[in-house]
Amino acid sequence: MPVDFGKEVDYVAHLARLSLEPEEKECLAGQLSEILETARRIQELDTAGVEPTSHVTELPAVLRDDSVRPSLPLNRALQNVPQREKSFVKVPRITASELEQD
């Protein structure tokens, strides 16, 4: 079953916050369909009951002590900020559709 990425491009581009030119979209739709088509070959493998590997290191997390270490000086922390406003980082207008929950 071929993967048709054409219908998904807009949705995925929105999820990824990527503005794409029409030609880019068309090109991507074709390439991504092809890549996913190939990737789907893994469906042939029987993985029933197989634990997924998310880390190759089979060790538990190391915990650090709760000690405060110096933060970056303010000007260091903000040295790459495109738009500053005093010690804040300036952010464009937030639209209702962008409000997300945590």
Binding site: A16, R17, L18, S19, I35, P92
Partner: peptide, 29 residues
């Protein structure tokens, strides 16, 4: 970009090259 959504999408659309976009799209999907 006059709002956050446009600004995010344009920044990333203009800032990333084609291979990065391809992979970000595949991964997001």
């Amino acid at each position: 970009g006059d709002n956050i959504e446009t600004m995010f999408s344009r920044t990333r659309g203009e800032g990333f090259g084609p291979e990065v976009k391809r992979r970000v799209m595949i991964g997001t999907y």
